[in-house]
Amino acid sequence: MLDFLFYFLAALTLGSAFMVVASRNAVNAAMFLIVTVAGVAGLFVLLGAYFLAVLQILVYAGAVVVLFLFVIMLLDDGGEAKVKPTAVSIGASLAAFMLLLLGVLSFLGGPELVDTGAAQATETPIGANLQEYGRQLFSVYLLPVQVAGFLLLIAMIGVILISKRHQEEALEE
């Protein structure tokens, strides 16, 4: 059952990711992005990272993609159908894709990794639960949390700054 779920989620994730790249329409792309994100969240569940799965759904599907959709509606761009990608760019992209694929396959074929599959964990050995997150984030990782706070602050300020309509500041001096 779990195996089936894994393959189902994997197919879902990859397929919808592919559709994000392939779909002409930005709205469709965003929709498929939601599916991708949900698929990844599902995989998180399989990996026992329930909290991250919830976070992924909340932040990505709930906020990020909605933001995307919002912007797409707002901009109402004509779509990119008119401009076809050039042969060169397609070729380059395919080459890059093949290279990456090759890389992925080659390191998966490495002897060290094949063994790791044995390191199966049937129960949940690491406390990937909320309490453990709390402990870690507010003790060992307190400094990065503080920095992240500043990061969010400047991101917020930046968004307000950039998206304000041209309400000109009074010139002093």
Partner: peptide
């Protein structure tokens, strides 16, 4: 196992990059 997850991750990365 881990390999399967890594394969998905690698493919996802490649799709995104492309």
């Amino acid at each position: 196992g881990l390999n399967e997850f890594l394969a998905i991750s690698g493919l996802l990365f490649a799709i995104g990059f492309t």
